Simulated scan of single mutants.
Amino acid sequence: MLHVPNISFHMPSVFLLVGIPGLQEGAVWTSIFFCFLYVLAILGNGIILYVIKTEKSLHTPMYFFLSMLALNDLAFPSSTLPKTLAIFWLNDGLIDATSCLTQMFFVHCLAVIESGILASMAYDRFVAICFPLRYNSVLTYALLEKIALVILARAVVVIVPIPVLVGHLQYCGDNIVLHSYCDHMAVVNVACGDTQIDNVYGLALSLSITGFDLLFIGLSYALILRAIFKMPSREARHKAVGTCGSHICVIIVAYLLGIFSYVTYRFGKKTIPHTVHIFLANVYIVFPSFMNPFIYGVRTKQIRRRVLHIVTHQLNTCRFSY
């Protein structure tokens, strides 16, 4: 009589995250590197939020979007780095299925939110440069709140199907996820059933969201450049370019890392080692969050002055206390 093994096709109760395969020997230095970036990202974005909140002159639409970006940059690495560091330091790669799906939702939701914020910041610069006299009347706080709600709602609506689809896949007992966090495709690759819907939805979502936001950003800056070239004085053109410099740097850091990580993970599996895929996926999450406060802190005069004032005041307070 033929014996049929008892195989469950339901999602495993727990998954085992392996971290970054191939970096076991350099795990200490890798973990220190990511921990260093994470701590600085938390401190930098916390300072940005504090400065914007306490400085009334920064209560403008531009800094409203910057506050949103800083909040997202606090949440994004916090959705993965604590677990990643636990794998490195405590060898604790186990994560229950519910927590895995929850992490998957937040990781991809926060990525979509960040893309939406960057597109909104491009619109802010477009209005500021092309319609400077109407800036405050166009970007009212009522409109800013609606934009923020649209960014959040769009992310939730398009990302909710991802963990739902993953939760309904068939699994054949394997629960090892070759990643340091519950990335969508990393968990899909564990399944043994038909994953075509998940693959198509993930690909279509990435292309549509990234494509639309990049197209919107590109169109905004095309109109901005046209307006800059029409300005009568060189000083005015230089000032206009300067107001966009920080945003352009942030866009380059975020999208360049994100697109490179996505392309190598989906299409470069045969040419690029898996270790590089996972390492880049972690860099994509933490590095922009680390860099953004420095970009805006260095390039934005108001933030730079306020931070220097706070630091000087604290140093003087400490000096007199002794």
Rank of each mutant, 00 (worst) to 15 (best):
V250C: 13
F294A: 06
D96N: 13
L315H: 07
A41C: 08
T140W: 08
I224Q: 01
S78R: 02
V250N: 04
V127I: 06
F105N: 10
A155D: 03
K53H: 11
D92M: 12
F279N: 02
V127C: 00
G202N: 04
Y284K: 13
F88S: 03
A122G: 15
H108N: 14
A155L: 10
V127Y: 02
Y123C: 11
G22P: 04
L101E: 04
S13M: 08
F267W: 11
A281K: 00
L215W: 06
P232V: 00
A75D: 03
I113Y: 13
I285N: 03
T312R: 12
V253H: 14
L143D: 08
P21F: 12
V112L: 00
K301L: 04
L58N: 07
I310R: 13
A41T: 03
G93Y: 05
L219D: 04
F64R: 11
Y181I: 05
G44K: 01
A236N: 09
L139Y: 04
A86S: 04
K83S: 14
V107I: 15
H59N: 09
V164C: 05
T317I: 11
V253F: 14
F9N: 13
Y63F: 10
L152F: 12
F260P: 03
Y265R: 00
W29R: 10
Y265L: 06
I48W: 05
R234T: 15
S31E: 07
I278W: 02
P61I: 05
I159M: 03
Q24R: 07
T271R: 05
N292V: 14
T80I: 15
A186R: 02
V311H: 06
A111W: 11
L144M: 05
G46Y: 03
L17Q: 10
A153Q: 08
K83Q: 10
L40G: 04
L225T: 06
I197E: 06
V14D: 10
E55D: 15
Y135Q: 03
L94C: 08
C318V: 02
A191G: 00
I278Q: 08
S180H: 13
L118W: 09
H108P: 01
A119Q: 00
C172H: 05
H10K: 09
S67R: 01
I52F: 01
I47Y: 02
V253N: 15
V160G: 01
I147E: 05
T102P: 11
Y265E: 14
L207C: 00
T102A: 15
M291I: 10
T264W: 03
